[in-house]
């Protein structure tokens, strides 16, 4: 496994744990037009933590994830994952895109979508064997969707679609999970199911980073926040960084009092 030769904090002795940052971003600038979507962003995400990326609409939250994954080409900046380049670590990274980013009328079944998460194992022409089906079915079971394997994906509700996307990410068997608004437009039961799965991942020592919208649930769901508004505003444990001062700085006058109450 990935043993560090010189561990800086002595108490972290679990064998097999990778203490290098699963995602390290330096000087990331992304531009879609003339105006930069991200400007010189630095971020070092903690291994084994659940981090929420928060910020106002158009702050570049999704762009940060996409650039970190190499989907969006940055103007400048450097991405490292577990001390290596992104392309060397793709097998350790799972991604849950925004649900609305795909056409759910695509002619395919739930099971086929989850099997997409096994692409790196299956390769170009590898046959889908019983063990692959077993993995896919167990991932569906973890999100409570095992009864839907044969459904066409267009027949699912929004929450069910989101669970299928999460199951596909689970099938990737990664160490780092990047989720883009996993709770957007889902029902309460799905939200509960998803957060349970994510917390279980954290228990296993995996790293979870999610773009998050609902400030009220941040302290319940996450242990760290990364606040962004085109540039980095703050980063740290919820107790230190999720404070009115930084939120005001990121959201400005747009922050509702109710949310401030929950935050403070």
């Amino acid at each position: 496994m990935h043993l560090e030769l010189a561990t800086q904090d002595g108490h972290r002795k679990d064998v097999g744990k990778d203490t290098r940052s699963p995602l390290e971003i330096r000087g990331l600038t992304v531009s879609y037009g003339e105006k930069p979507a991200l400007f010189s962003v630095d971020a070092t995400f903690e291994p084994g933590a659940m981090t929420a990326i928060i910020g106002p609409n158009g702050a570049g939250k999704s762009t940060l994830l996409k650039a970190a994954l190499g989907i969006v080409k940055p103007v400048s900046g450097r991405i490292r994952s577990y001390g290596k380049s992104l392309s060397a670590q793709r097998h350790r990274i799972a991604y849950v895109p925004q649900r609305a980013s795909v056409d759910w009328d695509f002619p395919t079944r739930v099971l086929d979508v989850v099997l997409m998460g096994l692409y790196r194992q299956l390769g170009l022409l590898g046959r889908v064997r019983p063990k692959h089906l077993e993995i896919a079915m167990s991932c569906l079971a973890r999100v409570g969707m095992e009864g839907f394997a044969d459904r066409q994906i267009g027949q699912l509700s929004g929450g069910q679609q989101q669970r299928v996307f999460l199951a596909r990410a689970l099938a990737q068997g990664a160490d780092l999970y990047l989720l883009d608004e996993p709770f957007a437009g889902v029902d309460a039961a799905t939200e509960k199911a998803i957060i349970a799965v994510l917390k279980a991942l954290k228990e296993q020592g995996k790293t979870v980073i999610a773009v998050h919208h609902d400030l009220a649930t941040v302290p319940d769901y996450f242990d760290r926040v990364f606040i962004i508004n085109t540039s980095r505003v703050a980063e740290g444990p919820v107790a230190e960084a999720f404070v009115p001062e930084y939120l005001q700085e990121a959201y400005g006058g747009r922050l509702a009092t109710a949310q401030m109450g929950a935050a403070g």
Binding site: S87, Y95, T108, V113, M116, R120, R168
Partner: peptide
């Protein structure tokens, strides 16, 4: 189906 996801697979 999902171009972004496909890219993250390399």
């Amino acid at each position: 189906f999902d171009e972004g996801f496909a890219q993250t697979l390399g």
